[in-house]
Simulated scan of single mutants.
Amino acid sequence: MAKMNFNDYGRAMAKYNIWQNGVLYELCEQIGDAERRRDRGMFFGSIHATLNHLLYIDHRILGILKTGQAEPFDARTIMADDFETLRKMRVETDAAIAEFVDSSDHGWQDDIRELMGLDGVTRKLPRQLFLMQLFNHQTHHRSQITSELHKMGLDYGITDVPLTPDLPL
């Protein structure tokens, strides 16, 4: 591959996201429900709550990408209370992200959106920035979870983007 454009970026990161979330959920399954729900002093308390938060924000950002709009933010939103439902929704959401970035309609990339942040400031932002935020947000919170898994003696393994299996480039 000689060059990489924004569409290539989206496809590569969607593939990376699927890979990393698969690894994460496999390890989280191994520790059991009590350990996933234990308050570990993380920003969202538990691994389970952090997984919920990731899924919720992905749905919000995917809405912005698809429609230019976001539902009102509610930090208390619970996407799924049980791990199996949460895992199923994660797989479905990752597939929806991959489908979105693989779409042949890239007109959304030319769009500028006004969005009021949690800080109360309204900004005019390119929708492309939201795709970057989706993947950055995932990495940020996955690292919080992997830190906790490491403390339990679980090796998370490789997280390098260039080593993503079967990159679609």
Rank of each mutant, 00 (worst) to 15 (best):
Q30R: 14
Q30C: 03
Q30K: 15
Q30W: 04
Q30V: 03
I31T: 05
I31Q: 02
I31P: 00
I31R: 06
G32E: 11
G32S: 08
G32N: 10
G32I: 07
G32M: 09
G32F: 10
G32V: 09
D33Y: 07
D33K: 13
A34V: 14
A34T: 14
A34Y: 08
A34N: 12
E35F: 11
E35I: 11
E35V: 14
R36L: 12
R36S: 07
R36A: 06
R36F: 07
R36C: 10
R36I: 05
R37N: 14
R37A: 14
R38P: 05
R38C: 09
R38A: 15
R38N: 11
R38F: 07
D39M: 13
D39I: 14
D39C: 13
R40N: 13
R40K: 14
R40L: 15
G41P: 11
G41M: 10
G41S: 12
G41I: 07
M42D: 08
M42C: 09
M42Q: 13
M42Y: 09
F43P: 02
F43A: 08
F43V: 11
G45I: 01
G45E: 00
G45V: 01
G45C: 05
S46P: 02
S46G: 10
S46M: 06
I47D: 06
I47P: 02
I47W: 03
I47H: 05
I47F: 04
H48W: 02
H48C: 00
H48M: 08
H48L: 03
A49T: 08
A49D: 14
A49I: 02
A49Q: 13
A49Y: 05
T50H: 09
T50V: 10
T50P: 08
L51K: 00
L51V: 00
L51Y: 03
N52Q: 09
N52S: 10
N52M: 11
N52H: 07
H53K: 04
H53V: 07
H53R: 01
L54N: 11
L54G: 04
L54D: 03
L54Q: 06
L54S: 03
L55C: 05
L55T: 05
Y56M: 12
Y56R: 06
Y56G: 07
Y56Q: 11
I57N: 11
D58E: 14
H59S: 15
H59E: 15
H59Y: 14
H59L: 15
H59A: 15
H59D: 15
H59V: 13
R60Y: 03
R60K: 15
I61D: 00
I61N: 03
L62P: 01
L62Q: 00
G63V: 00
G63S: 05
I64G: 00
I64F: 00
L65V: 01
K66C: 06
K66G: 07
K66P: 06
T67A: 06
T67N: 04
G68L: 03
